[in-house]
Amino acid sequence: MGAYRSTGEFQRDRNYITSRITADGRDGYPVEPGRYRLVVSRACPWASRAIIVRELLGLQDVLSMGVCGPTHDQRSWTFDLDPGGRDPVLGIERIQDAYFARFPGYERGITVPCIVDVTTGQVVTNDYAQITLDLSTQWAQFHAPGAPQLYPEALREEIDEVNDLVFRDVNNGVYRAGFAGSQEAYAAAYTRLFDRLDWLSERLSTRRYLVGDQITEADIRLFTTLVRFDAVYHGHFKCNRDKLTELPVLWNYARDLFQTPGFGDTVNFDHIKRHYYEVHRDINPSGIVPLGPDLSGWDLPVAPRI
Rank of each mutant, 00 (worst) to 15 (best):
R228L: 01
P148L: 06
P45A: 00
G264R: 11
I283K: 15
N268M: 04
P301G: 02
P104L: 12
F103W: 15
T216I: 10
V279Y: 05
E158M: 08
N163A: 01
K243F: 00
Y36P: 03
S6D: 05
G287S: 09
D82Q: 07
D169Q: 10
R192N: 14
S6T: 08
L291Q: 07
Y36G: 03
L193I: 08
D219F: 09
Y186W: 11
G91N: 06
R208Y: 01
R102G: 13
T216V: 11
A43G: 05
F263T: 04
R168N: 12
R108H: 12
R54C: 13
F100A: 14
A3V: 10
I21Q: 05
H234K: 10
P290N: 07
Y99E: 05
P83I: 01
E202F: 08
A147F: 00
C114L: 05
P88L: 07
T260K: 14
T260D: 11
Y175N: 14
G264M: 08
Y253I: 10
R305S: 12
P88K: 06
T260G: 14
I306A: 15
D169S: 11
I92F: 05
A3G: 09
G25R: 10
Q11M: 13
S19K: 13
G212S: 10
F237H: 14
P88A: 09
A218Q: 03
V249R: 02
G287H: 03
A303Y: 03
L257T: 02
G8D: 02
G84H: 03
I95R: 12
T266N: 12
H143Q: 02
